[in-house]
Amino acid sequence: MKRLHVRRGDTVYVNAGSYRGTKGKVLQVFPEKERAIVEGVNMVAKHTKPSAQNPQGGIIRKEAPIHVSNLMLLDPETGKPTRIGRRRNEAGKLVRYSKKSNKEIK
């Protein structure tokens, strides 16, 4: 399984597709499929049958997964899209850092 550059809770920039230029928060990540669900991005219409939770049924708009290659992490300092790298910090723990500002990402 490949290690991804995005994690749940990260703020990302969409750099390709019909939602290009959109910023959003990562809600869920699927490492085995290399996809992520981003808040407000790749909205699809899902038709639902009436159920106990939704007695009316109808059409629900929800986010669909988007490939992680179309996402860039936002730099915590400048707020602009950046590539990330991995390095060991003083405690010897592997951490992500922004290649644009050279700052550690949470």
Rank of each mutant, 00 (worst) to 15 (best):
G92Q: 06
H47Y: 12
G92N: 07
P50T: 02
V41I: 13
N15F: 08
G24N: 04
P55F: 07
Y97W: 08
K46T: 14
M1T: 08
S101A: 15
T82N: 05
V44E: 14
E32A: 13
N102H: 09
R86K: 11
K106C: 10
K25A: 01
A36Q: 03
N70E: 12
G40I: 03
K33Y: 06
V44A: 08
K46N: 05
K62W: 02
K62N: 09
T22F: 12
R35Q: 15
E104F: 08
V38H: 00
R7H: 09
D10M: 03
A16I: 05
V12A: 02
R83H: 14
K80L: 14
V29N: 04
P65R: 01
V6N: 04
A36K: 02
K49Y: 10
K99M: 15
F30C: 04
I59N: 07
K100W: 01
K2A: 13
K100P: 03
R7E: 14
Y13L: 11
Y97I: 03
A36F: 04
Y19K: 05
E32L: 14
A64D: 14
D75Q: 01
A16K: 11
S18R: 14
V41G: 02
I59L: 09
S51Q: 11
E39Q: 11
T48S: 09
I105V: 14
P81V: 04
T22P: 00
S101M: 13
S18Y: 06
V41C: 03
N54K: 10
G92R: 11
E90V: 11
G40M: 06
R87G: 02
P50W: 02
T82Q: 04
E104V: 13
L4I: 05
K49M: 12
K49C: 07
S69T: 12
G21D: 04
G58L: 13
H5G: 07
R8L: 02
M1V: 12
V41D: 00
R87Y: 03
T82S: 10
S18M: 12
A64I: 05
I66R: 00
T82F: 02
E63S: 15
V26G: 00
K103H: 12
S18G: 10
K80C: 03
A64M: 08
R96C: 02
I105R: 00
G85I: 06
P65V: 01
I59H: 03
G85D: 06
Q56P: 00
A45Y: 07
I37P: 01
G92K: 10
Q56N: 10
R83G: 08
K23L: 05
V41P: 00
K106T: 11
G24I: 02
G9T: 05
